[in-house]
Design a binder for these strands. Structure first.
Ligand SMILES: Nc1ccn([C@H]2C[C@H](O)[C@@H](COP(=O)(O)OP(=O)(O)OP(=O)(O)O)O2)c(=O)n1
Ligand SMILES: [Mg+2]
Length: 1012
DNA sequence: ATCCTCCCCTAC
DNA sequence: TAAGGTAGGGGAGGAT
């Protein structure tokens, strides 16, 4: 069977969106796996001018053995047969004797004499490139630990061959074993030795020497669970949660291992001059011995670039099998929890053996599903340390051949072997591939596959380049004839000359097959991210804050490792879908909605406090869904800068981030100065809510719902978990169908058909909060609440209908638009929109009215709940009961409120206070620039005029200035500010502001000691 | 046109 | 119970 791909687009159609640089390697990889797993035959790649797969039609069965080695596959088998024939033919040709007739050996590593194989063949023996069950002996001077475990009992010293030839007869092999396992046994405990002796009885010498797996011992069932010393699993907000999670997360581990390889390669490449290319030398020796320059079974034009894709076969399983011979040849998977009689396991399968794959078991599948396909499935546990070791060994072997390596993953390397092939006489792609596979196996006991990619020089061969383009490139640019030439052109040039799309295709296709497209600057990633979508079950904001702080710290650490600072943060929040059940997978995220939000940082930074506060601010802006619904959190740092001196970061960045208002606050709407939240989770002073005057049973859930979310939570928490649950239950998330469930189809919750967004006919926007309830709240909360209500009232009055229906279509776009600083959105019903003629007023009145009838585009209207919760009364909460009673068209309205002065995007007093406190704490020497934001803010407050807030703030500053913990410098600044403000107030109003005797208004303790 | 944000998808 | 991460390409559609 021959498969030819010439068309990049067809390729993408076939294999999905593959990252272009690896396009052809991936193609070979994917195709080989497909062929191997579904056709049960092994592919052999033959590369011609373009890419051709020649599939060896030898079926797997024909090369079957008994020890698992047959998995090496038809390709290997074919190659092996080929090599063996070659060797054995040469043996036939010049047979000196038949001493070794009927004996099959494999030679591992380097032996003396170096021509041992040739000598052996000349004396009638057979040679196998790889050891199999039919191999009688392995000849070696020493073995790696892994090989020793597997083949040690069959391994003879080279002297056996030499001595036998000298003696003219085959000598007793028992005297030439490389390892004396009996000797080793003596050093073990008596009991161990005894059991080994017993086992050895009656077996052949080789079998007797086979040590049993140390891990297996006598028990059939392997202990799958972790060491039971820690019965308690850490909750997401607890310190150590992340580390514990990462210790067990295979996906985290393979990602980390990949990065480790990248850094490793980088380091090796930097010390190229002193690097020891031992495998290159080995290969050279091998070539001299084999003298098989005629072995051109891959069509290859000298000089062409040649890439290998080297990949370990079923990586985790192969490693796991090293010490578990009993799972050779059987369907086996690597997973955390195998399940038992009573509990079926929803644990992910990281890696399935090929035997298991024949049943349809795949990597990533759940054990429960796999067991349906394959009831006899065996299970082995993870061993991340071993994976790391093998991954590194693997990398080092290839790196000892060439350093032109790009790690594709922890078990996959993209290798540019052009120079190796071209500089070694007699070398060929297949012999090199063969050699690498052999060496990898010898060192790691893991089998590898090698795909081969060849670059064609003429650009005319590239997909998408026909006669016309070829002509243009040749005549209009500087004589572009080859791919390499083409790559010299800049993307911009190509795009400007040939159009964006064509330019891209040109740019990419010439790299898809070009060795120079391997990238070795792994040290410059485009993004650094941490996602935790497992084990997230929070009940309180403070828990979220603890978790976020830990994530922020970890992110900061990762940025430091990468020597990067970031200018942009993106958070991804997963929230439980409405009505979604608790996921089957324990701790899993289940069916979720995905919320993304990104924001620009003013300066490149890796300061974890800035991260922390920014993340919090982003989360707040993306959704008001309560933390109890959170199922996953991701934080991505992008816009990375590597030339930014991290040392200058820290306080300096924090300072300017703290107080520097954007130059044009409204023009860069999405830029945020990141400070709005407590520096540490404990900062939120435990406001003891004074609810004495309200009996618990008096708390109306609906009133609770009408409160701003955080406050509602606080109140609910006060009343205990039941109330909290009730609250959450009464505030289900809107059904959302437009969001794809993340990660996999299988996470998709059966679609809930949204018919319409149903609201009562005449909802009031302003919650009717009972006086007694309000009165029971602490002063500052009540104050905030009342001002919220006031705001809502004003918003309500500011809402104008959209006279232009066309605007209604724009919702889907607007909904994703970064909110300008003062843009708030609310839900109103049609009834609420006074259908009058009011023209567009001042910007300050209505910035934008965006609305849409929910029943027009229900699918495309993921509902942002934040303001809905915040600003709508209990009546507005849709519920199962009333849903059929109303046919009201709802509109989602985003509008700009009247101008609310803000400091770092924050306008609420607790936030403002926090910002200022942080300034005092982290800015021992504030510059004028640092203070501008605060000064402007005060200025705006006074100009507003927002006298109440001005008063509160000035009193706060006054108090702060008098605190012993406040530095003299800051105290002076505050006093000065107050004086300036007072004089301005005096100028405007004719009298200064009363600032004394109300100090109790801001009694929160000033946090100290937030230093790490 | 190109950039940006949000979203989606892919490989391991 | 279970450890559903990480990095990157690319597209839609609005902003510039
Ligand atoms: N969904 C997945 C895919 C892979 N892996 C891990 C386990 C694999 O052993 C390793 C390498 O992935 P590969 O795609 O290379 O798959 P294998 O090495 O298992 O098999 P193959 O022989 O097809 O390469 O990554 C995982 O944990 N979860
Ligand atoms: Mg693999």
């Amino acid at each position: 069977m021959i498969v030819v791909y010439r068309d990049e687009e067809a390729l993408c159609d076939t294999f999905g969106s593959i990252q272009p640089r690896n396009l052809y390697s991936c193609m070979i990889h994917v195709t080989s796996k497909y062929i191997r797993n579904y056709l049960s035959i092994e592919p052999q790649f033959v590369v011609t001018d373009w890419i051709v797969f020649l599939v060896d039609t030898m079926s797997k069965r024909e090369v079957h053995g008994e020890n698992g080695f047959e998995e090496f596959g038809g390709y290997m088998a074919a190659k092996r047969a080929k090599l063996n024939n070659q060797f054995n033919e040469s043996g036939d040709n010049g047979c000196d004797s038949s001493i070794f007739s009927g004996v099959t050996i494999n030679i591992n590593g380097h032996v003396n004499p170096t021509n041992l194989r040739a000598v052996f063949l000349q004396h009638g023996g057979r040679y196998e490139a790889f050891p199999t069950s039919s191999t009688d002996f392995v000849i070696a001077a020493n073995l790696s630990e892994a090989t020793k475990r597997k083949w040690g009992t069959k391994t003879l010293r080279p002297e056996w061959v030499v001595d036998s030839i000298a003696a003219g007869e085959k000598l007793d092999s028992n005297k030439y074993f490389l390892y004396d396992f009996n000797e080793e046994n003596k050093q073990k405990t008596l009991r161990q030795a005894f059991s080994l002796e017993n086992n050895a009885g009656g077996s052949s010498a080789a079998a007797a020497r086979f040590t049993t797996s140390p891990k297996r011992n006598n028990t059939e069932q392997e202990q799958m669970s972790d060491s039971p010393k820690k019965g308690k699993r850490l909750m997401a907000w607890e310190d150590g949660f992340l580390e514990e999670f990462w210790d067990h997360s295979r996906l985290h581990n393979i990602s980390t291992m990949k990065r480790t390889l990248q850094h490793h390669i980088c380091k090796l490449r930097r010390s190229k001059n002193t690097h020891n290319f031992t495998e290159l030398k080995n290969y050279e020796v091998e070539l001299r011995l084999e003298n098989c320059s005629q072995n051109q079974d891959v069509s290859y034009r000298s000089g062409d670039a040649m890439l290998f894709l080297v990949d370990l076969d079923c990586f985790f399983v192969s490693v796991g099998r090293i010490n578990r011979p009993h799972v050779n040849n059987v369907p086996v998977v690597v997973t955390h929890f195998s399940g038992n009689k009573t509990i079926s396991s929803n644990s992910d399968i990281a890696c399935a053996s090929y035997e298991a794959r024949k049943f349809g078991v795949k990597n990533g599948m759940w054990v429960s599903q796999a067991r349906e396909l394959c009831p006899s499935l065996e299970v082995i546990p993870y061993d991340f340390e071993a994976y790391q070791r093998v991954s590194m060994q693997f990398c080092n072997i290839v790196a000892a051949m060439t350093l032109d390596i790009e790690p594709g993953s922890c078990d996959e390397l993209l290798v540019d072997v052009t120079s190796v092939i071209n500089n070694l006489p007699g070398s060929s792609p297949l012999s090199l591939a063969q050699f690498l596979r052999k060496r990898i196996f010898e060192e790691t006991q893991c089998k590898a596959s090698v795909g081969i990619v060849l670059k064609t020089q003429p650009i005319g061969d590239l997909p998408g380049i026909g006669y016309s383009l070829k002509e243009k490139l040749e005549t209009q640019f500087s004589n572009i004839r080859t791919c390499e030439d083409l790559q010299q052109l800049k993307l911009e040039d190509l795009k400007s000359r040939f159009g964006a799309k064509k330019g891209d295709i040109l740019f990419n296709s010439c790299r898809g097959i070009d060795d120079s497209s391997l990238q070795f600057d792994f040290e410059r990633p485009k993004s650094i991210s941490i996602d935790v979508n497992y084990g997230i079950r929070l009940t309180e904001q403070s828990q979220l804050e603890k978790l976020l702080l830990n994530i922020a710290k970890a992110l900061s650490k990762r940025a430091l490792e990468a020597e990067a600072c970031g200018t942009k943060l993106q958070v991804t929040l997963l929230t439980q879908q409405k009505g979604a059940p608790e996921p089957k997978k324990s701790g899993g995220h289940g069916y979720v909605d995905v919320h993304n939000k990104s924001g620009q940082l003013i300066n490149p930074t890796r300061n974890h406090l800035i991260f922390y506060k920014s993340i919090l601010s982003l989360i707040r802006s993306v959704t008001a869904i309560p933390v109890s619904m959170y199922r996953g959190i991701g934080v991505h740092l992008t816009g990375l800068k590597f030339d930014f001196d991290g040392k200058k970061d820290g306080l300096q960045t924090l300072m300017s981030s703290l107080f520097k208002q954007g130059d044009k606050p409204t023009s860069k709407a999405d830029q945020f100065n990141c400070v709005s939240e407590p520096v540490v989770a404990t900062v939120e002073a435990p406001k003891t809510i004074k609810l004495n005057s309200v009996a618990k049973e008096d708390v109306d859930l609906n009133v609770l719902s009408a409160l701003p979310d955080d406050i509602a939570m606080e109140v609910a928490t006060f009343y205990g978990l039941d109330k909290l649950k009730e609250y959450c239950a009464a505030n289900p998330e809107m059904p959302t169908t437009s969001r794809a469930a993340i990660l996999d189809q299988k996470f998709k919750y059966p679609k809930v058909k949204i018919t319409t967004e149903v609201l009562p006919a005449s909802p009031t926007l302003v919650p009717n909060l009972s006086e007694s309830f309000l009165g029971a709240l602490p002063d500052d909360i009540r104050e905030e609440l009342e001002s919220d209500i006031e705001e809502v009232k004003q918003i309500k009055s500011a809402v104008h209908p959209s006279a232009n229906n066309a605007i209604t279509c724009r919702l889907p776009q607007h909904k994703n638009k970064p909110n300008p600083a003062k843009l708030i959105s609310a839900v109103v019903t049609q009834a609420n929109i006074s259908v009058n003629d009011a023209p567009e007023e001042e910007e300050t009145e209505i910035l934008r009215v965006v609305s849409v009838a929910a029943d027009e585009t229900p699918e495309s209207t993921p509902f942002n709940r934040i303001n809905w919760w915040r600003y709508n009364s209990k009546d507005a909460i849709p519920s199962e009961q009333n849903s059929t009673n109303f046919t009201v068209v709802t509109r989602r309205v985003a509008l700009k409120s009247f101008v609310v002065p803000s400091l770092n995007e924050q306008s609420e007093m607790p936030d403002i206070r926090r910002i200022i406190r942080e300034g005092v704490e982290f800015l021992p020497n504030p510059s004028r620039e640092d203070l501008n934001g605060l000064i402007d803010y005060l200025d705006e407050l006074i100009s507003g005029p927002f006298m109440k807030q001005t008063q509160v703030l000035l009193k706060f500053l006054n108090r702060l200035a008098n605190l012993p913990s406040t530095s003299q410098k800051w105290a002076k600044i505050f006093k000065l500010m107050i004086r300036i403000c007072q004089s301005k107030i005096q100028r405007i109003f004719g009298f200064p502001m009363e600032l004394h005797d109300i100090e109790d208004d801001f009694v929160e303790p000033i946090e100290v000691d937030v230093k790490e």
